[in-house]
Simulated scan of single mutants.
Amino acid sequence: MHRDQSPLRARSAPDLVPSLFLELDQMLDEFTRLPMRAKFRFDPAMPAVITVEFLAERGPSLVWLIGRELLLLGTTAMSGSGDVRMWPTLPGGRPASWLLLESEEVEALFEVPTAALVEWLEATYRVTPAETEMAGLNWDGFLMELLSGPATASE
């Protein structure tokens, strides 16, 4: 390594695992698909979480943080519960999975092509294996923030 290169710069996420852009379909109803593009980003500082930005043609994009394990498992079996779920489509078509996102404001179902997604997720696991993804977390800080509760506005 050149002396001007820091280890952090040498291990930056875009260099190790570039963002993945996927063309997917949002299911508006049983018969209507809206083609959409999504950007998947991996940050080695938060390896258990994948940032997915749904790029709208018009208007603001929508960002969701989704568990890396949930995405990988969802390519072969039902995965997730609550706000984010993913499962494979029926066999016979192109390799794809359904990704369901729910919140108070939105419910959206996407058909996600899985071949490129699996290849990209496997690259993230080569950078940070599953067994080490929680090693760098500040558990004390996390617990202190959790126990302190939400901040209240002063009057």
Results as ranks from 00 to 15, higher is better:
28 L>H: 03
90 L>H: 07
93 G>D: 06
104 E>W: 01
131 E>D: 14
136 G>F: 04
93 G>L: 08
119 E>A: 11
66 I>L: 11
89 T>N: 02
123 A>F: 01
102 E>M: 08
45 A>C: 03
80 G>W: 02
61 S>W: 03
128 T>M: 13
106 V>T: 14
54 F>Y: 10
13 A>S: 15
145 E>Q: 15
84 V>S: 01
44 P>Q: 12
65 L>H: 14
15 D>Y: 11
131 E>Q: 10
1 M>P: 09
31 F>Q: 11
149 G>E: 12
14 P>Q: 08
99 L>Y: 06
64 W>P: 05
112 V>D: 01
14 P>T: 07
97 S>Q: 05
1 M>R: 07
74 G>L: 05
123 A>Q: 13
3 R>G: 04
30 E>W: 04
111 E>H: 00
110 F>M: 07
31 F>T: 14
134 M>Q: 08
108 A>D: 04
113 P>W: 01
123 A>K: 13
79 S>C: 09
80 G>D: 04
6 S>M: 05
101 L>I: 09
49 V>G: 03
41 R>V: 14
40 F>H: 04
57 E>L: 12
120 W>H: 09
70 L>M: 11
13 A>F: 07
4 D>V: 07
9 R>V: 07
131 E>I: 04
104 E>C: 01
82 G>H: 04
1 M>I: 07
23 E>N: 14
87 W>P: 00
20 L>C: 10
102 E>H: 05
146 L>V: 10
115 A>P: 00
100 L>R: 11
11 R>C: 11
132 T>Q: 12
69 E>A: 11
29 D>N: 14
145 E>R: 15
115 A>L: 13
58 R>V: 13
87 W>M: 10
11 R>D: 11
39 K>N: 12
9 R>F: 11
90 L>T: 10
129 P>V: 08
59 G>W: 11
94 R>T: 06
89 T>C: 12
139 W>L: 15
139 W>Y: 13
123 A>I: 01
58 R>E: 15
107 E>I: 03
12 S>N: 15
116 A>M: 04
83 D>F: 04
112 V>G: 02
1 M>W: 07
37 R>S: 13
143 L>D: 07
146 L>F: 12
134 M>R: 08
140 D>R: 13
136 G>H: 05
13 A>C: 06
19 S>Q: 13
44 P>N: 13
81 S>R: 11
101 L>H: 03
143 L>P: 00
4 D>M: 09
40 F>Y: 13
136 G>K: 05
41 R>M: 13
21 F>Y: 12
139 W>C: 06
143 L>G: 01
58 R>L: 13
93 G>I: 01
5 Q>F: 10
